[in-house]
Design a protein around this nucleic acid. Structure first.
Lengths: 197, 197
DNA sequence: ATTAAAATGACCGACCATCAGTCATTGAAA
DNA sequence: TTTCAATGACTGATGGTCGGTCATTTTAAT
């Protein structure tokens, strides 16, 4: 036998090492050779840990999103009202780490243009998990008497709404209006679902 | 002088001629040479009319979406209730021409991965135009006494919602659930905004 | 216990095939 | 003769592969 490296850990390490150039230059403007140099490994080695350039972005997003989710869960727990919690979730799209947002955008583009079962599953997992978050939040809101029961049925749509607005703002290059649009929509929605006193 | 060709028309012609291979093979699996052969022109000629492969998809989507919009406007005008009209709009995402949907997906991926001012403007134009459609529809609904006035504020979010659900279903490879999710969300929403009798 | 040989896997970068985009040339109309 | 459209051979860049090297561990012979 010989040296045995922790493949999973090394994959993570490489991904995080070259995170910055992905953020600053974008996947399209990076060559495999540059990435390898940045990561401090040979080109061939990259291919021992990743399928291709896109797979590296996948790994980075995986890591950063997991970290983000953990943080977010805590933040949301602190929010007082249901509306606050929902708004807190949506801050991902306009307020939290720009780096992750940029990478997430690229990752969505990759997932749309070169389908791949692992990525599909990842998206599905996220979608399910975020929908579940919303469901829980809204159910609590109902229990507290803040919002009406029907609103629980909206939980599936909320994440899609944020994603749609976010991607539209990316595609139209108008990230300045995003926060307003999202918050205004939420305000309207809560006007509709809040229990009238 | 010599022959003067209608550049705009020829751009359209070429785009439509090779529409099918884009639909069937996807932009990633096509080379410029193949496209040129399919279009029946030389490789250099392509570059007289398009900036690159992506630009061809842009042209195809432009054309097909314009046709689709014209059709849709008529269909929506025929729908009786406000809810029907809204649902009719969303059929783009699950019921209308698959071809356009596939190309639209690729086009979004392109727009996200290689920003370009013309594409950004196009997305902005679409977003504005669809938001306006919704606003008109909802305003009519209010006037008819079908829905409450507040609902007009939702018009900006509706297109984003559909887009978000559509792109999610593309990324998760679960187009089968899309119709249900969209319709269920609309049903819930209308429960909230319909004028109680 | 010591040492050498064998085995294994990590690592590498030169090489190859592919392909997007260019440009010098040809062709055709006026 | 002029002018513009059309072309496809060519080139530079780059993604991905593959044969080989090196470091470490295991085995086993002394």
């Amino acid at each position: 036998m010989a040296i045995i490296v922790d493949k999973i850990q090394k994959r993570r390490d490489i991904a995080l090492t070259c995170k910055d150039i992905f953020v600053h230059r974008g996947i399209k403007n990076l060559t495999i050779s540059e990435i390898a140099k940045e990561a401090g490994v040979g080109k061939g080695t990259l291919y021992d840990y990743f399928k291709n350039k896109e797979d590296i972005v996948f790994e980075i997003v995986n890591i950063l999103l997991a970290e983000h989710d953990a943080l977010k869960e805590k933040k949301m727990a602190q929010a007082s009202s249901t509306k606050e919690k929902v708004k807190c979730f949506f801050e991902f799209f306009y307020n939290d780490e720009v780096e992750l947002r940029g990478l997430y955008k690229e990752f969505v583009a990759i997932s749309l243009s070169e389908p791949n079962s692992e990525m599909s599953e990842f998206h599905a997992k996220c979608y399910a998990s975020y929908s579940a978050w919303f469901k829980t939040i809204l159910q609590e809101g109902v229990k507290e008497g803040e919002i009406i029961e029907q609103s629980i049925a909206l939980s599936n749509g909320l994440f899609a709404l944020g994603k749609g607005m976010f991607l539209s703002s990316c595609a139209t290059n108008s990230n300045d209006k995003l926060q307003d649009e999202i918050e205004s929509y939420i305000d309207t929605l809560f006007d509709l679902i809040e229990v009238k006193k």
